[in-house]
């Protein structure tokens, strides 16, 4: 890999992108260190693709600056320091898999050998297949192969497994994970929480063009997971409920009480042994709900 003098892969400062009245990106500050595997997680329309387009130099910010490996984005792209796997498109159906990689390699001054790239993306067996005859998963691995051609410092993947079946997703991530083990910086946008959880060192949660959470997978989960205990308890008062061990928040709706907390067993035991509560129900807030809690319009 080419060497650069910076330890920072991506630096966004005060980046905004407005399309008329729409604030697609509304002030993002973010530093991605080299060697990190970072998931850019958020619902559709959160500004993930807009941000990625600016990092790749495909569009320019309304305000703020974007630096990629110490250069302007378009320079980093031209020097083969950064490449990307886009969500869809970007392939010619009437070329074979090998021709597509050969053609891509012909644009770069010092490309990796075509056969090596095909092997790394798990495409060695289907090099002569027409792109139009490849499955969605195979096409996505071809996009990954094209991204590997310049042997970049940084690969950006925009929702790379959208529309893939379970097997396709598994094979795709196996190829990525093997590659990441070589120390490349990887940034991927996704709205699949399990992907962010399984493959990223760091998760940045975006909502409405802003970063709403930033941390390891464990830290993000701790921020938003928990269980809800629901019971009937006539005459309950919020301050009393909040005093119950393990309760983080409490709500009273008529005779029904709603208690949030991470240790639902402790809350339930207290309610059943120390109060008159009945009709007890424990529901878990899974990761998807946690994600929604952090990124949804209600938060």
């Amino acid at each position: 890999m080419a060497t650069t003098l910076t330890d920072t892969a991506i630096e966004l400062s005060g980046v905004t992108k407005h399309y008329g009245e729409v604030h697609a990106v509304d002030g993002i500050d973010l530093t991605v260190r080299r060697g990190e595997i970072l998931a850019f997680l958020g619902p559709n329309g959160a500004g993930k693709t807009t941000t990625i387009d600016m990092v790749l130099g495909l569009s320019v910010p309304t305000a703020g600056t974007v630096r990629v490996l110490g250069s302007k984005p378009e320079e980093a792209v031209a020097n083969g320091l950064v490449s990307a796997v886009m969500q869809s498109g970007g392939l010619l159906k009437d070329l074979t898999v090998r021709e597509t990689v050969r053609l891509t390699a012909s644009f770069f001054p010092r490309p990796r050998p075509v056969e090596e790239v095909l092997a790394r993306a798990g495409l060695a067996d289907i090099g002569d297949r027409l792109v139009g005859k490849c499955s969605g998963g195979q096409q996505q691995r071809l996009r990954f192969a094209m991204a590997l051609v310049p042997d970049p410092e940084l690969i950006i993947l925009d929702e790379p497994t959208t529309g893939m079946d379970v097997e396709g997703r598994r094979e795709f991530w196996a190829a990525i994970r093997e590659d990441a083990a070589r120390g490349r910086t990887i940034v991927f946008a996704t709205h699949y929480l399990d992907e962010a959880d399984a493959y990223a060192d760091r998760i940045v949660l975006v909502r409405r063009g802003r970063v709403v959470a930033d941390g390891t997978s464990a830290e993000i989960k701790a921020m938003a997971t928990g269980r809800q205990v629901r019971a009937t308890l006539p005459g309950a008062r919020v301050p009393d409920l909040q005093a119950i061990p393990g309760v983080e928040s409490a709500e009273v709706r008529g005779d029904t009480i709603l208690l949030q907390g991470r240790d639902s067993d402790m809350i339930a035991r207290h309610l059943l042994t120390q109060t008159e509560a009945f009709d007890l129900e424990v529901t878990s807030q899974n990761l998807e709900e946690a994600f929604l809690a952090l990124t949804g319009d209600g938060s």
Partner: peptide, 15 residues
């Protein structure tokens, strides 16, 4: 090539 997104892909190369 524009319809297929190939032109956009080319912008991610030094071409």
């Amino acid at each position: 090539e524009r319809a297929a997104g190939w032109s956009r892909q080319l912008r991610l190369t030094p071409l």
